[in-house]
């Protein structure tokens, strides 16, 4: 089985987000970049499927050279090879086009990625990739098993879940509990250094969207504390002051 896992390099989940250059750029000073947590689930499941049924796992990132530590970590976790499309991931359509260009003639059985990136939270890339390649897309996938040519999938829906069967090839957006996050071991880290990481140039296209500036949310006012032995007062305040109930 040939699996492509698309990963994002994003600020660690504990990052306090700030901007520079008149609020037009993320302030990267002191920010640790990690593999997108959802992408990490996708990668972990891809490695498990490979270990069970054989095949290869290719990691793909659309990003600058500063994303390479994240890519190396994916190789250390068990991916066999990596491709980096050398471009800033500015817009979901653009990123999807790059992924589709890599995948077009490579006949992957599965193209996996996180249900969404945790920077733009668009959750759109997998669907656009699938549309561009003419493949089905399913997200968010919580369970993925492959039996021959058929994927057996549990997908989360509002207030529940559904069991799905579909023929490969497929594009899937993944989330927990599809697999446990994997931590690279020493041997993995050593071998990752020698695994191939190919850098390719992007396919050019017009820009469909552009961020003109960023903004931080206004801080909340000070918290109003209510003594526990007067808890009922809270309900009164929510009713008469906040007017939400």
């Amino acid at each position: 089985m040939k699996i492509l896992v698309c990963v994002t390099s994003v600020p660690d989940t504990t990052t306090k987000i700030t901007f520079t250059d008149n609020n037009t750029k993320l302030n990267k000073a002191g920010v640790t970049f990690i593999t997108g947590p959802y992408d990490d689930y996708a990668l972990a499941r891809a490695v498990e499927l490979k270990e069970k049924a054989g095949g290869t796992v290719t990691v793909l990132n659309v990003g600058g050279a500063d994303a390479e530590p994240v890519i190396r970590k994916c190789l250390a976790i068990g991916a066999d090879e990596a491709i980096r499309v050398n471009a800033e991931p500015t817009d979901a359509y653009f990123v999807a086009e790059q992924i589709a260009a890599v995948a077009k003639d490579a006949s992957y059985d599965l193209i996996l990625m996180g249900r969404e990136s945790i920077d733009y939270n668009g959750g759109q890339v997998h669907g656009i990739v699938a549309e561009l390649l003419g493949l089905p897309s399913i997200s968010p996938v919580m369970v993925l098993n492959v039996d021959g040519n058929t994927a057996k999938i549990t997908r989360e829906i509002e207030g529940g879940k559904e069991e799905i069967e579909a023929k490969l090839p497929l594009v899937l957006g993944c989330q927990e509990p599809i697999a446990e996050w994997k931590i690279p071991n020493m041997r993995g880290i050593m071998t990752a250094r020698t695994k191939p990481l190919k850098v390719v140039e992007p396919v050019a296209d017009e820009q469909l969207t552009a961020v003109s500036r960023y903004e931080l949310p206004a801080p909340r006012g000070t918290v109003k504390m209510i003594p526990a032995n007067e808890a009922e007062k809270l309900i009164q305040l929510l009713h008469t002051e906040a007017k939400v109930i």
């Binding site: 959750g123 549309e131 897309s137 997200s139 509002e158 469909l208």
Partner: peptide, 23 residues
């Protein structure tokens, strides 16, 4: 936004080559 709409927006953007804003 909903789980059904999420599944549709991306495919729509792909079909219409649209500029997409989520959230």
């Amino acid at each position: 936004k909903s789980s059904l709409a999420d599944a549709m927006t991306a495919r729509l953007a792909g079909k219409l080559k649209a500029g997409l804003a989520a959230n």
